[in-house]
């Protein structure tokens, strides 16, 4: 039997979710898919559907409103899966840290595998994060 787990990293499908970001990181994520950076050459597909996703790209601080939704989406992604937190707010809360309406970084709710810093993170960083995530995915 061939090791089919090996192919996990060859076809990472991405679910992108915005928990209340300023859209800066989202634009950078979309830029990754554009011809200049072309994430698709790594087999990445932006599915928009948790049931077919492997990598959970989250942008934005964990606002209270998004709490349940984030959990719901996370639970709908079949294993093995990795979570990539894109942007400073997502990692730690960033400029929104300790504000009344946020719960800081998303790692207060779901386990995060890769932290991608930056406000907003650049496409290069995001791609780097995804490649890192692929290594983790292979190990899972």
């Amino acid at each position: 039997m061939l090791h089919i787990k090996r192919f996990l990293k060859k076809s990472p499908w991405v679910l992108h979710y915005n928990t209340g970001s300023c859209n800066g990181c989202d634009i950078e994520i979309l830029a990754c898919l554009s011809p200049r950076y072309d994430l698709e050459r790594l087999g990445v597909l932006n599915t928009g559907n948790p049931k077919q996703a492997d990598i959970f790209l989250v942008t934005g601080p964990l606002t209270h409103r998004c709490h349940d939704r984030l959990l719901q989406l996370y639970s709908q992604i079949p294993d093995p899966k990795v979570v990539v937190a894109v942007g400073s707010c997502t990692c730690t809360g960033g400029v929104f840290k300790d504000m009344y309406n946020v719960n800081n970084g998303i790692d207060s709710l779901i386990p995060v595998d890769v932290y991608v810093p930056g406000c907003a993170s650049s496409p290069e960083l995001i791609m780097d994060g995804i490649v890192k995530a692929l290594e983790i995915l292979e190990g899972k």
Binding site: N49, K51, D68, R69, L70, Q72, L73, Q76
Partner: peptide
């Protein structure tokens, strides 16, 4: 079994 996809809504 898994619930249906409704953009994360319950």
């Amino acid at each position: 079994k898994i619930s249906v996809y409704a953009c994360g809504e319950n």
